[in-house]
Simulated scan of single mutants.
Amino acid sequence: MNEKVPVEDWAAVVAGVREAGFRYFDWLDCVDEIGRSNEFRLVLQLLDRDTAETRRLETRTDRDTPRVPTLSEVFSGAGWAEREIHDLFGVEFLGGDGTPLLLPRRYGGHPLRKDEILAARAAVPWPGAKEPGEAQASAGRRRMAPPGVPDPEIWGDRDPAADPADPTEVVQSAQGGRVRRRR
């Protein structure tokens, strides 16, 4: 079970857990909770190498202004994970290294946010085949929408005069496996 930590106490609590013997930084990751709450959940796992016991801590931050104190002063290895999370989810780590790790600055998005539109999936036709060489066998099968592509009524063919789609609405419509409608 994860120990829940308020975001403002994140670095101090992690430092205390380190002093309690959990000196090995195992991993830090992020979960987009859209559809359940308007938050990102950060999960940290630490290890006591003497006892082989692990501890998991989690904190939550608002999706609209995701800011979390850095852990790089407690565990230097956390800086790498924080830079990755910043690139992929847009979480800002206060006091940390904000240099992009994986994506160029011009990218402008955060591809692991559930409301991020994966335009390449919408632009390239989905083959409908599950295995190589299966394309001929699936020629008569109805085309399926790839995972991550929202329903065209929500994103794409939406009326330009309408208000933009709500992020939760986009996420709920971006389920793979729908049959594409013929136009």
Rank of each mutant, 00 (worst) to 15 (best):
H86E: 09
R67C: 10
F22Y: 15
A122T: 02
A52Q: 13
R63K: 10
A52K: 14
A122P: 00
E73G: 15
P104I: 09
E92M: 13
D62I: 07
C30F: 03
G21W: 09
P66G: 02
I34N: 02
A20G: 07
P127F: 12
G108C: 05
G77N: 14
F93A: 01
A78W: 06
R49N: 10
V14Y: 03
H110G: 04
V43D: 02
I117N: 04
R23K: 12
F93C: 05
R56V: 14
G79N: 07
D115E: 15
V14I: 02
Q45N: 09
S76W: 13
A52F: 14
L103F: 07
F22H: 04
E53C: 08
E82C: 08
L112H: 01
I34L: 15
V14F: 03
P111W: 12
P125G: 14
G77D: 09
G21P: 04
V74S: 06
L118E: 11
R36N: 12
L118T: 10
P66Q: 06
E53I: 08
D97Q: 03
D48I: 12
E19P: 01
K114V: 06
F89A: 04
L101R: 08
V91R: 03
S72Q: 12
A123E: 12
Y24C: 05
Y107E: 05
G108E: 11
E19L: 11
A123S: 07
R113F: 09
V124C: 04
E53Y: 08
E82K: 09
G77I: 13
D115V: 09
A122N: 03
L101W: 05
F93Y: 12
I117G: 04
A81H: 15
L42D: 00
A78P: 02
D26K: 09
A129C: 11
P111E: 07
D64T: 14
V31C: 13
P66T: 04
F75I: 13
V91A: 01
F75S: 07
H86I: 08
A52S: 06
G96V: 06
A119W: 15
G77H: 08
G128P: 05
D64L: 15
H110S: 11
E92Y: 07
P69Y: 09
L103W: 03
R83I: 10
Y24A: 06
E116N: 09
T59A: 02
L88R: 12
L28Q: 00
V17T: 13
